[in-house]
Structure formats: C-alpha cells, structure tokens
Design a protein around this nucleic acid. Structure first.
Lengths: 188, 188
DNA sequence: TGTACATCAGTGAACGCGCGTTCACTGATGTAC
DNA sequence: TGTACATCAGTGAACGCGCGTTCACTGATGTAC
C-alpha cells in the first residue's frame, strides 16, 4: 500500500485504499464486460486492466464468480438508488412509471458494461432475483393503469426497457423514437 | 464410417452419414447451450455428448466460432421457415402479427438451447443481423396498425417476444397470461 | 521518543487443468480397368 | 470378377496456451509500552 488517503468523490470522506483498489477492479471488469461479455472476462484481463497483481484480486473477491456478482450488485444498486430517488414522492401511475423507466435508461447510459450486466442473466439465481426485484417495482403502476395481468406485463415492460437500454448504449446517446414507442405501448 | 444409409425423417430421402454426425453435433451443442449458455460450451463437451472423437468436430466445422454460428443459423432457419409458412397468405395487419408471434413462441418451445440462441447476441454481427431480419418482418404490420416509428416499435416487440419465449422455455409450456399481455400492448 | 509487534492490502511465482486446434493415420466405400 | 487406387468421414494422441486459484512473502501503517 503506497497511498492510503484517497477521498471519496461523493461524500468527501476519507476512503481507504482498499476500497479504491476494489473499485478499480470493478471498473476494469465493467469495461471488459463491454468488450467481451460477462462470460468472456478472465481474472488475468481484469488485473492487467486495473494494474494490480493477480493475488490482489483474491484479496478483494473470494473467486471469479463473486467478482461477477459484485459487478452486477454494484450496477443494480446504482440503478435502484437513482430510480427510487426519481420516484420517491410520486403515487403509482403513468407518470411514476415513465419517470422510473427514463431514469433506468439515463443511468444505464452512464455505466460501462450495461449490456452484459443487464442482458446476460444466464442461469444465475442471484442475478435473476435482482432483475425481478427491479421489474416488480412497476407492478403497482400497471395495476393502477388497469392491467389485470400486471405481473406478466411488468416482465414485458422490463424486457422493452432493457432493449432500449442496449440500443442506446450501442449508439452512445438516448433514442427518442424508441422511448416514444415505449410510451405508446403503455397507452392502452 | 460404419453406417452410411441414414434416412432423413422429413424428406425420407437417403441422408449420408456425414449429415447425421453434423446434426448430432449441433443437437449436442443445443442441449449444452441450454445448461451452460453459448459461451460456456467447449468443443470437449460437445464431442463427449455427441459420442464422437474430437477430430470429428473439425471435419464438420472450421472452428468453435463456426459451430456456434451454425447452431444459431439452424435455429433461425427453423423459426423463419415456420413463421413464413404460418403467415404466407395473410396481408400485413394485426392478425398476421399475432400469428407470426405465436409461431415464434411455439417453435421456440420445441428447440433446445433457445434461451442462449435467441438471447445471447453478444457482439457477433452475423447473429445480430439474423435477429434484425426477423424483427424487420413485423414492420409492415406495425405500419398498417398506425405506428409512425414502426422500426423502433418492431425492436421492442421482438424484445417482448424473446422475453416470453425465455419464460415459457423455463416453465416448459406456453404462458397465456404473458401472451395476452403482449396482445394488450399491441392494442393501441 | 523509541522499540517491538500486529495487521493487512498487495505481490508474483507456481500449480494443475481444460481449452481449441492440428495432423498423421484408419478403414469403409466408390471407381477404373 | 478381381485388383489397384482415390476419396473422405472419422480417430485420438499431442501441442502450446491461458485459465482460476494458492500461498509464502513484503512492507507500510497503527498500536502498546
């Protein structure tokens, strides 16, 4: 350890170097997920990109699987926090639904590796559970809008939002036509 | 080669053993894709499951990537053929759209490895092109239904259909609530 | 203030393993004479 | 009909490589006295 007094850019509190290295590894993983997909990432690639020794990886993560999970957890935590904040004082309904969707899309655009992180669920139950939790947040909105199969509708809605997110990330900017189409699908 | 006179179950024409082994490899790959995802398949696993020697794999496929592509091509050819047949004498419109969607879902349910094959696009341009071609078939229907951003809507529609397909495959049978929700999204 | 010790993030060589790919070979079949 | 040769799907040992993981070690910092 050569530099122990790193400052958290958000809280401006002191941040131990340990957290700094951990974040660097997760950032490297996210960048690599963008290029190679989640399954295409190797520990070798991650430590090379982060500029640390191979052993350091195992100081911070139990194994490769725990690292993938940590990447996914971080991404979902960011998305969920932003969505909650955007929607906190709104009652269930169309307005709340659109705001949540747009927040998801805007946050996703700023995160490397989103496509891999949101699309490559694989058969990992933890990842599937986080995805489901996010989708579940829209069920009450859809019920208010008169859907009787609100749960099924919420899953389809989530699939559309992920699709737009992937398209926007490829292009590097929001796609108004896609967002408009999403709105239209919800005008029932 | 020990048995050269295999009969194609569809055409009842003679089928050289070569095609038989190739199909066996693709079948093994599809089964493995179901368990491990496309990226999780190894040549070792495929030949072990198909019961042939490792070298045989390279008699039929240039390399691992060509094999993955061949699996995807076979799946899409099946889906496309079935959809075209189901829809051949229908004019663009709601009826044609639903029939195409239901055909996609029904065929997918019968094919091993669908989830991997339809969801794991990765960054492969050939796979992305086949996916896009399938989605493009619904654009004219959406135009007739009054969508002005029919292309964007077609992509979202395709995402919903893939989502339902994945859900149905997990459960092993059609999910009427999901199919109904899809229909509702299209009633604009 | 100086010394001895504990803590802990970080290091990198070493490991065994399964990977994708190659290639000289086999043996059954089809063809030419 | 018999013989010589060509073809080609199938074989499996062998290859070099990058993988994930381990572990004895380093050295800077914090703590006790």
């Amino acid at each position: 350890m050569t530099d122990r007094s790193v400052t958290n850019p958000y809280t401006h509190e002191a941040m131990p170097d340990a957290a700094h290295t951990r974040e660097a590894l997760l950032d490297a993983g996210a960048a690599l997920a963008e290029e190679h997909g989640l399954a295409g990432i190797s520990v070798n690639m991650v430590v090379a990109r982060a500029g640390v020794a191979k052993g350091t990886f195992y100081v911070h993560f139990k194994d490769r699987a725990a690292f993938i999970d940590a990447m996914h957890a971080r991404f979902h935590a960011r998305v969920e926090a932003a969505m909650e904040e955007a929607v906190v004082d709104l009652a269930p309904g169309a307005e709340r639904l659109f705001r949540a969707a747009e927040t998801y899309l805007d946050i996703s655009l700023q995160n490397r590796g989103v496509k891999a992180l949101s699309l490559e669920a694989g058969s990992d139950p933890t990842i599937a559970a986080r995805r489901e939790r996010l989708a579940a947040g829209t069920i009450s909105d859809l019920q208010v809008l008169g859907w009787d199969d609100a749960e099924a509708a919420a899953q389809l809605l989530a699939a559309m939002i992920r699709e737009i997110s992937a398209l926007e990330f490829d292009r590097g900017h929001p796609l108004p036509a896609s967002r408009r189409s999403l709105k239209r699908f919800l005008d029932t």
